[in-house]
Amino acid sequence: MSVREGLLALLAQGPRHGYQLKGELERALVTGRPVNVGQVYSTLDRLVRDGLVTESASDGAAEGGTVPRAGPERRRRFEITDAGRAALSAWFAATPIGDDATGRTPDVARVLLAVATGTADPLAVVRAQRGPVVARLQAVRQVQRAATDLHDALAADADAARLEATLAWLDRTEERLRTKRSR
């Protein structure tokens, strides 16, 4: 569910403590289920290892929020690097198709993170995502039209329905972003 990029997008807004990131990530990605705190820290460790994030010690009191009373993670503070920002920009610009662990297509996570963190232009993200989805759907349309038996037609319909749902959401999102409507 894009934990890595979610963390980068949140850190692109400013430095965070590890304990802040779990809740903010759940709100940004609207996953509907808790993000595993162990996954947050293991992902942060990998981001530090890869040079996309730096870690510094801090007591966290001045940053606000509830500081854990004890535990090894209480002083860990993270900051995005230039390489991290570049990796995040590249991710926003990428247009893969497929499902992630939430069952959502990756473009949904991109748009939600862009809106939640302001680290990319949501309208540009929506438009960039739409092209490959439409192209995939055009290919499925060819299969739908060529299908000569019910089995093939139903399989193609299923692919089309999933892509149509993504497109309906992207179209609706663009309309909302253009008019800045929340409903």
Binding site: V134, L137, Q138, V140, R141, L163, E164, A168, L170, D171
Partner: peptide, 13 residues
């Protein structure tokens, strides 16, 4: 059309 689901039936968009 404003609807990309409809547009996807076209050869070219």
């Amino acid at each position: 059309t404003h609807d990309s689901r409809m547009a996807s039936w076209a050869d070219r968009i």
